[in-house]
Design a binder for these strands. Structure first.
Lengths: 171, 171
DNA sequence: CAAAACTTTCAATAAATATTGAAAGTTCTA
DNA sequence: TAGAACTTTCAATATTTATTGAAAGTTTTG
């Protein structure tokens, strides 16, 4: 007889939240931030700060700061719940839209700045011909490549889901 | 009159190394590792551990560990220098090849594991119909999306430069 | 095979980053 | 408009991650 183990909900939920947190932190995103995001992804209703503190065992300050960072990233939103005074939070459930938004932000925060630096340092001067040539070559190649990637991400962030799936077909 | 400031070589080199280190660390790559890589990118000859320690003001242990991590990532190689006993290190200068190799490794190290978790937790069971439905929906969507991205990166890592540029044209 | 040349390891330490929680700030309501 | 409800801030602290450096290990050479 062959049994497949089926997790119960609390176990699966926790496993997903931990995994999302780890993935975030290996890509330079605060673990708490990623965990809060994971929790909101699973929630069927908007959650309050208290509910998040409670489920993830985090302090009010931490939840508040990371919720605001998520809002700043454009992937979490305040939701007014009628009859309630405090804030409730929810995230978009469309994974495609999430990916676009994260790409957009990382492009702005990390790719654009490195392009600026590459452009600046490319104008280097010096007496050692060989090292200057190598420096210009490397930074120039990086600039060209990054510019292309930047353009590609830009297209992606402005595209719709159909575009992406059509692109996948072509590959 | 309009003067454009041209950096001198040491300044530009340092700026590039710092910027590459920062970029690495905001993408979850050890700063020292990224800086060593940057230094090797600019070098016109293979460098020894001592030269790296010296230029980047790092300890022998740190250089040794991070060089080995770079070798493990497949982007730095030992080079034998005739008449020398110690190891010298160099990195590939082809940016396209570098991008493919980094993609390949990150796919293996980070995307594959999350796919495993998503698949596992998707088989969740529980009594609350609504939360189970939401859980299955979210993890299923993430799995589908990640599988597609995984496949795309796989194609990318196996492709040649022409493929990539042709793809960029299509966009 | 001794000792010099070189590399690796890893416990201790430092540095960077994340988190807490209490106090200050703000907004709402009666 | 006082005070209750709620949010934000931030210095202190904890945690995680990176780095050091000296000792142990390995390889080479004469």
């Amino acid at each position: 007889m062959n049994y497949i183990y089926h997790m119960n909900y609390p176990e699966a939920k926790d496993k997903f939240i931990q995994a999302w947190g780890n993935l975030g932190s290996s890509w330079g995103i605060n673990r708490s931030m990623a965990q809060i995001h994971a929790l909101l992804l699973l929630a069927t209703e908007p959650l309050s700060t208290e509910e998040i503190m409670d489920e993830l065992k985090m302090s009010r300050g931490n939840v508040n700061m990371n919720i605001r960072a998520l809002i700043d990233w454009g992937i979490v939103f305040k939701q007014h719940v009628p009859g309630e005074r405090k804030d409730f939070f929810a995230t978009g459930k469309d994974i495609w839209q999430l990916a676009r938004q994260v790409s957009r932000e990382r492009r702005r925060r990390e790719i654009e700045p490195i392009l600026t630096v590459l452009e600046e340092v490319h104008r280097v001067e010096g007496t050692n011909k060989e090292e200057i040539a190598e420096f210009r070559k490397v930074t120039g190649d990086l600039f060209d490549f990054s510019t292309k990637v930047d353009g590609m991400i830009d297209k992606f962030t402005k595209s719709d889901q159909g575009w992406f799936y059509k692109l996948l077909m072509k590959l």
